[in-house]
Nucleic acid binder design. Structure first.
Lengths: 198, 198, 198, 198
DNA sequence: GATGAATGAGATTTCATTCAT
DNA sequence: TATGAATGAAATCTCATTCAT
């Protein structure tokens, strides 16, 4: 019966924000920047538009937060991958089996970095985050190690990482779009692309 | 003095339509359905919005025409590829080196089929065109042949075609987005994916 | 084989103008001022928009011509009615059996005079034509005569003419709209209204 | 400080909607479907276009609501008329003296059902509402009763109701259009039409 | 914090009108 | 005279954002 403590308020608030961001991620990743309406996010999250604007000054600021989180989570994902036991190939396999939220983060990042419909300002911010996160560069040693072990095919590791990201993004996009009329591609193609083995 | 003949009108019209469609293709393929403003197309094509509506009843009808053309052109592209000399692998290489317009057609088709921001009606139409075009099915024999010749890695040919399209689309999207800060992926990964050879 | 003479040109021209006006009348009377597109008139008349604008400077000028003709034709109709044999009641009956074109003229006039969607300028012009035509005033003596003969019910003849026009217009509008689901009203109600007899 | 309660929001909304519908009714009834600009409604109601679209998805949906209300109100009007004391003739007289809002509802209904400028979809909806409302059929018994009492002239009651509606609509339209230069018709003509008496 | 009413800028669409040939 | 290409103003509609309570 006693009023909620400050701490409890904070918890409620944090939980709600987490909920909003989760819904936002799902929608932005699927529908793209312009296709996403804040009103949709609000109603899917079960709150009012007003409250959304109470937490975030604008659509762009909201997306910026998502981008920030996305890159942060992907960094963590890569760290975990590194720390997991196994050969480089086994480590990479685990990325393909990302849980859904991480797939969405990955898609969001890829989309913001590449899609022409995102405002330049956000693309620039995303690029800075991305570059400073060294998300890309951190992958390179893994590939080198794999090449040294003979697990991976030879070639410029930078280009291979770039290709890996591109293909991974394509696969994840198709994964979301679960249309029965289209045949789902085989994730093993990605592995084959890396290993150069049937 | 004398009025324009029907033939002359047709020429003017055909030229304009070609011009508008070419601009539209470029913009739709890059910016997606919602990201594409008809005013942008009009001004890029150096005409008024009104004229666009003189030729096409709506944004959707315009995109429908583009989709139709896209699938038609891609069908032709595949036919040409089949008729070109060389092994299946050599034939497929030529698809990777599509000229820019064909790349745009490819991207447009992939995007319309898969992106959530395209109106359902158009997606349905695109799907029908795509399925009836047998764009997909026509590729399968080529892969089978390649597998028999030992050029390609084994595996369900349907899944391989699907993967091939996905990856090709990803590569083409990156190709357009010629951002110097990002390393361009290596088109050979696609070949490696197919052949299972380094 | 010899070129058409000036006279023949004039005939072609006149015939075409008559055709255009006839189509325009039909459409304006049915669809109203804003509902009528010049492009519709042109295509229904089998000519180009350009030619329509060659004959008439604007939509309003075109309608003005129609109004002018309408009132002229209605004047003639009333004259004919006067000159036809029979009692005042029998004369009025003939108005109810107007041929279709006259019904359209009647509707057009009524609509332009009363509908709010017609530009003020045109309404003013129509009103002037209408008042100077004495279309209204010419009817009054007929009603007076009918009242004297005991054929018509008593009452202010001006108000009766006004009612007569209103009801006639309503009947004609329903006449055009030949919708099977609605019961067509009985033209005899109009007569009964005038005569005060069952 | 404290947020508005659901109840308060409902009040604001209801008030606004009532206001918008009232303005809309006035304008649609006078100017017809195409003649009515949403910007006019908005500015007459003292609100922004945006707010109109906040409450109604489209011009058509807005008109649909009006039609729905119109038929509902007219049904009530007819019920009241039935329950009012007096002979059938006296009851009908009360319809002629409808208050302004009901006149507008009557005109709106008549117009939507008959005018060619209203989109077919809306006409169909209006027709369904109208037929299922039995607005028409409910009048018939009254006329029969009047005929039995000798108050009304003989004739097919269906056709008489139809005529009654037509003439009533014409009278109401003229009533709105309060143009001093035109003589207003006499509502008694309508009564005379029914009774067949001077 | 929380709501949804309200706005306004900008996108899509329509159509009377002009114009080159 | 005759065409339909082309324009631009104005209408419908969408949605990010603000605001009173």
């Amino acid at each position: 019966m006693s009023p909620l403590s400050e701490e409890q308020f904070k918890q409620i608030r944090d939980k709600r924000i987490e909920q909003i961001l989760s819904v936002g991620l799902k929608i932005f990743a699927r529908k793209g920047y312009i296709g996403t309406k804040l009103s949709t996010i609000a109603s899917e999250a079960g709150i009012s538009k007003g409250l959304l604007y109470h937490y975030y000054k604008s659509k762009d600021e909201f997306l910026e937060t998502l981008i920030h989180n996305a890159i942060h989570e992907l960094e963590n994902g890569i760290k975990e991958m590194y720390q997991s036991p196994g050969t480089p190939l086994e480590k990479l396999r685990s990325m393909i089996e990302f849980k859904e939220e991480d797939q969405l983060y990955f898609l969001l990042t890829h989309q913001v970095l590449l899609s022409d419909e995102v405002p330049d300002k956000l693309k620039r911010i995303a690029k800075e985050h991305f570059l400073s996160s060294q998300l890309f560069d951190q992958m390179v040693p893994l590939f080198k190690e794999g090449q040294e072990l003979g697990e991976f095919a030879p070639g410029d590791p930078n280009k291979i990482v770039s290709s890996f990201f591109t293909v991974l993004s394509g696969l994840m996009a198709l994964n979301l779009n679960n249309d029965e009329e289209f045949i789902q591609p085989d994730p093993n193609v990605l592995i084959r692309m890396l290993t150069g083995r049937p």
